[in-house]
Design a protein around this nucleic acid. Structure first.
Lengths: 346, 346
DNA sequence: ACACCGAACGCAAACGTTTGCGTTATGGAT
DNA sequence: ATCCATAACGCAAACGTTTGCGTTCGGTGT
C-alpha cells in the first residue's frame, strides 16, 4: 500500500515550511502567487491528498454527518422512504463536500450506542434522526449533549428545543380524508403504522378531524395500527374485509402495506377502483412500476432529506441559532385507485 | 456543547500518566488490577469517550469501511438490492464495531472523487464496491493504490488481483432457463439490464448455453438489454409483445422491471401465469407484498453483503493475503408465475 | 550486605494538520 | 542613510491518542 505523502513531504520538496503548504491548500491571501504556483505544482506532482483525521483533530470538525435509522435497519431499508430520504441528504452533503455515516445497530440499544460513539468519538459534525418515537433515548441524549441535530418528523416531546423537518401530517391526512369523503365514502379504513410513531398519530388526528367535520363518526374497528410486515398486514386487512360492513375505502399509511392490500384485494377478487378505493401515503417512483395506478400522497421525501441536511449545516455553522421547524407541503397525486360512490350518498 | 473529557483529564484526576489511562482502556496486562480499578472508576465518573480521530491518526486505522454505490444513487436506492446488501454489510460491521461510510456522488466522476477522498484521506480502512462495470475507474484505482477492497460482482478485467463475491450468474441463468425450457417454452425473452454490467453478460451467457443445449436458437429480437427505468422498460416490453411471434416467457433481470412487466401485461389483459410465464432475478422480501406470486431467483443479497464485509476484514487484517473469490449459491423460488406450455412441445 | 530482576508505571516522541505569532525581506517615506 | 510599515513566510505549539523505552520500587537470591 502506497505510503501517503504528507504536507511535510511536499514542504521539503518545495523548499517551504509545512505551514506554507497548508496555507496554499486553503488559498490563504497571505501567500504570494508565485509561491502558490510553485507549491501547487509539487502538490500535483506528488499526488498529495489530505489526511482528514489529522485535520479533524485540530479543527475539531469531521466533514461528515451521521444518520440514525429506525430500528431495525431491516424494516427501514425495505421501505422506499429511507433510500429516498437518504438520497436527499446525500445530494446536499455532496454539494458541501460532506460524507455520510450510517448507524448499523439492529436493536434500539445498539443504535443508541452507535449514536454515542459517533457523537463522543467526534466522528460526525451533526446528526439527522430519521424517525420520531415515544420514549426513544436518542433525541434526549443529543439534546443533553447540545449536539447539532435535526429530526425528520415531529418531536414526541420537548418540541421547543428541537429543529425538525416534517410534513403537516394532520393537514395532509385531513385533506386526503376530505377527498375520499367527497367521493361519497362513509366506511373508510385507516390502515397501518405503529401508534408509537408520531407521524401515525398526526395522520390519525387529521383523519378524525375530517370525519367529524363531515358529520361522520369514526368507527374504531376501521382503525388498524400495526407494524409493517406481511403477517400483521394480512391479518389486519382480512379482519377489515370480514366485517359485516366492510370498508369501501382504505387510507394506507405506507407503500408496502398498500402493495400488500392490493394483493389481498386481488386474491379476493375485489376490484380497485371499481369496488374498493385505495389511497396510499408516501408516494415514491416505485409506485409507477406497479400495475394498479394508486392514488398517493406525495410527502416529498427527497425534500425532507434535503432540507434536513441544510438545517443541520446551519446548525453546525451557528450552534446558537434558534431552533426552527420546517414544514414540507404534501400533495395528493390522484390516479384511478378510487371511485365515486354515488349510490352511498345519503 | 459539552467539552469532551480527554485521556489527560482522566489521568490528572486519577493521579496517573496519560499512557497509563490508555493502557487501562486497552486492558494492557502491564497495569496492576488496583490501578485499573481506580482508573476505570474515574473513566466512568467523567464520562470519558475516546476521540476516534486522534486514535486513527496514530494507529492509521479508522474503524470504518466505505461503500461505493453505482451511479446514480437514484437508480441504486430504488432497487431493493442495495438496501439489502447494505444490511448484510452493516450487520457484520456492527459485530466488529465498524461504521459505514457511503459515497454520495451522483455522476461517475463525483463518485470517483468520493472514493479518492475516502482512500487518500484515510477515512476508511477498506472498501466494498457494489457493482462491476466495464471501463470504470474505481477498481483500477483501488488496485493501483493497493487498498483493501472487495468487489460484489465479477471483475470485468484483471480478475487475478481482486477479491470478489459473486453468484455464479452463468449457472443461475442456465438453471432457470432450463427450468423454463422444461416447461415447454420456446419463445423466451431476456429482459433488462445495461450490457455494460458483468452480471448481465453472465446471465445472458447462461441463458444462451441453456438454449443451445436444448437445441433452440436464441433469437436476438427476444433480447432486450436496457437501463432500469420506466420509459425504456415499457418501450422494450411493448416491442416484445408486438412481435409477430411474441414471447411466451420472460426472464427478467430485476425486480423493478418484473413489477413493470406485470403491470403492462395486466393492462394488455395478458394473464400471468395462464398466458405468460415470468421469472425474475433478485428475490427480495418485497416480492411477497406483490399480488402476483412471482417465481424468482434468490441471489441471497444479504449473504453477498455479509460475506463481502467478512472478506474485507480479512484483507485489512492480512493485506498480503491471497485474493480469493467466493461464490454465493442461488436458489430458484418457484411460485405460480409460470405455466406448462404443453401444447408447444414439439 | 550486595546486586539483580521483574513488575508497574511515567516520559516523550510521533501521527499530520492548523494557526497565532514572530521573523525576515522589501520598499517607500523622511 | 535611517526608520517603519507591510507583505511573505517560518516556528512551534496544539489537537488527543499510542507506544517504545526508561525509571522506580519492592522483593528475591546469594
Amino acid at each position: 500500500m502506497n505510503l501517503s505523502v504528507t504536507i511535510k513531504d511536499v514542504a521539503k520538496k518545495a523548499n517551504v515550511a509545512p505551514s506554507t503548504v497548508s496555507r496554499v491548500i486553503h488559498n490563504s491571501p497571505t501567500i504570494s502567487e508565485k509561491t502558490k504556483r510553485k507549491v501547487r505544482k509539487v502538490l500535483k506532482e506528488m499526488g498529495y491528498h489530505m489526511n482528514e483525521n489529522a485535520r479533524n483533530l485540530v479543527t475539531k470538525s469531521t466533514k461528515a454527518i451521521g444518520i440514525v435509522m429506525k430500528s431495525s435497519a431491516r424494516e427501514s431499508l425495505y421501505n422506499p422512504f429511507f433510500p429516498e430520504v437518504i438520497r436527499g441528504i446525500g445530494d446536499f452533503c455532496n454539494k458541501e463536500g460532506y460524507s455520510l455515516s450510517l448507524t448499523t445497530g439492529e436493536t434500539e440499544d445498539a443504535i443508541f450506542e452507535d449514536v454515542v460513539k459517533m457523537v463522543q468519538g467526534r466522528r460526525v459534525d451533526g446528526m439527522i434522526v430519521l424517525y420520531s418515537k415515544k420514549d426513544d433515548k436518542v433525541v434526549p441524549y443529543l439534546l443533553k449533549q447540545g449536539f447539532p441535530f435535526v429530526l425528520i418528523g415531529k418531536p414526541s416531546t420537548n418540541m421547543s428545543g428541537i429543529t425538525f423537518i416534517d410534513n403537516d401530517n394532520v393537514q395532509a391526512a385531513r385533506e386526503v380524508s376530505e377527498f375520499v369523503i367527497s367521493l361519497g365514502h362513509e366506511r373508510i379504513a385507516f390502515l397501518g403504522g405503529s401508534p408509537e410513531f408520531e407521524v401515525i398519530q398526526d395522520r390519525l388526528t387529521g383523519f378524525q378531524q375530517a370525519m367529524e367535520q363531515a358529520g361522520q363518526d369514526v368507527r374504531q374497528e376501521y382503525i388498524k395500527l400495526i407494524p409493517l410486515n406481511r403477517m400483521d398486514g394480512i391479518k389486519a386487512i382480512d379482519e377489515l374485509l370480514e366485517l359485516k360492513e366492510a370498508p369501501t375505502a382504505f387510507l394506507v399509511m405506507d407503500l408496502l402495506l398498500g402493495v400488500l392490500l392490493l394483493g389481498v384485494l386481488a386474491e379476493k377478487n375485489l376490484k380497485v377502483p371499481q369496488q374498493i378505493s385505495v389511497v396510499c401515503f408516501n408516494h415514491s417512483e416505485f409506485i409507477e412500476f406497479l400495475s394498479t395506478p394508486l392514488t398517493t400522497v406525495d410527502i416529498h421525501t427527497y425534500q425532507l432529506g434535503y432540507e434536513a441536511a441544510k438545517c443541520v449545516f446551519d446548525l453546525i455553522a451557528n450552534p446558537e441559532m434558534m431552533e426552527k421547524s420546517i414544514s414540507i407541503p404534501t400533495k395528493i397525486i390522484k390516479r384511478e385507485s378510487h371511485f365515486v360512490a354515488e349510490k352511498e350518498i345519503k
